[in-house]
Each structure stands twice: as structure tokens, then as C-alpha cells.
Simulated assay, not measured.
Amino acid sequence: MSPLSSNDLERIFESLDRKMEGHVSIHELQQLLDRVGNHTTLEELEKLVGSTNLDYFDFFFFCEAVIKSKISENKEGNYDSLESDLLKAFKVFDLNGDGFISCEELQSVLLRLGLWEKCNGDCKNMIKVYDTNSDGVLDFEEFKNMMSLSVSSNF
């Protein structure tokens, strides 16, 4: 899962608003949701949204609510697709499979992805920010918190 920033949401909104009318219909929203695997009927969506069109701000807040809803579901212990995606992402960084992401593992993955320079080469401080038990590594819960905070801070 990659966090969506307000810029991402603006680009998505603009691509849905092909007629450049300043709103998207619930039909267009339904097509977007179908593409990302969230199937719903137009009737259900209209009840949820409360109208047949969304302007940018309504769209923005709708997306924010959906993401926060997914995060809340995970905090209640439901292991849905978001939890599964987070576990897969965690395993990408946990190179030795010990259940922790060390500074060396983080650096190795960021180097392979070509992102090391963008991070200013400071993995210890990157880990320290989310390392709630101060053991110098990230466990899965700390990683989930980091990703959840990244998602919500983009709104």
C-alpha cells in the first residue's frame, strides 16, 4: 500500500473529472472503487455519499474517511487486505526474516530502490522516530504505526 497525499487525490479527482466540471459523479466514483477492488452498488454509494455528485472537497473527505476506516478496522484486529499489504511490505524490509527492520536492512532496501540519497542516508533517525520501545529496530506493530501515521498525515 502506498499512502495517498493530497496531491495524489487531486490528480485522481482531475482524471475522474474528464469534463472539467468541478465534480465527479457517483457513477465515476463507483468505477474507481471497482478498479481498486471495493465493489458497491450505485444505490449503496449514493446513500453513503448523500448525493449524486462530489466536488473536490467532498471527494477528498470521502477518501480520507475510507482510509481512516481501513486503519480503524486493522486496529480492532481485523486482518483485511490492508493488514496483508502491510505485512508484505514489512517482509520486503525484513531481509533476514527475524521479525525486525534494522538500520542495515532499511539502508539495503532503500539503496536497491534508489531512494537512499533522497533519505539523506540517515536510517538511524528514520527508525528512531517510530521505535516506541527504543530497541533500535522496528517490529511489525511499529511499522504499522509508521505507515498509519504516514497515511493520515498526508490529509
Rank of each mutant, 00 (worst) to 15 (best):
M1H: 09
P3Q: 14
L4N: 08
L4C: 08
S6R: 14
S6F: 09
N7H: 07
D8G: 04
D8C: 11
L9F: 06
L9W: 04
R11H: 10
F13D: 04
L16Q: 10
L16W: 07
L16C: 08
D17W: 07
R18K: 14
K19F: 07
M20Q: 14
G22W: 07
H23S: 15
V24E: 03
E28I: 06
Q30G: 02
Q30N: 12
Q31M: 13
Q31P: 00
L32T: 01
L33H: 01
R35N: 15
G37F: 05
G37D: 06
N38C: 06
T40H: 02
T40L: 06
T40M: 10
T40Y: 01
T41P: 05
T41I: 09
L42C: 03
E43T: 08
E43G: 02
K47P: 02
L48V: 10
G50N: 13
N53P: 00
Y56S: 03
D58P: 03
D58E: 15
F59G: 04
F59Y: 10
F60H: 09
F60Y: 10
F62G: 09
C63N: 05
A65Q: 14
A65T: 15
V66Q: 12
I67M: 09
S69F: 07
K70C: 04
K70D: 06
K70V: 03
S72F: 12
E76P: 00
E76K: 12
N78R: 13
D80S: 09
S81V: 12
A89S: 13
F93E: 04
F93K: 03
L95D: 12
L95T: 12
N96K: 15
G99F: 05
G99S: 06
G99M: 07
I101S: 04
C103H: 12
E105D: 13
L106T: 05
Q107G: 04
S108F: 04
L113G: 06
G114D: 10
G114Q: 12
C119W: 05
D122E: 14
D122F: 00
K124W: 11
M126H: 02
I127F: 09
K128A: 11
Y130E: 02
D131C: 10
D131E: 09
D131I: 07
N133W: 11
S134V: 06
D135L: 02
D135Q: 01
V137T: 13
V137D: 00
L138W: 00
L138E: 01
F140R: 03
E141Y: 12
E142D: 03
M146V: 01
M146H: 01
M147E: 00
M147S: 07
S148G: 04
L149M: 10
S150D: 07
V151R: 01
S152G: 02
S152C: 12
F155Q: 06
F155G: 00
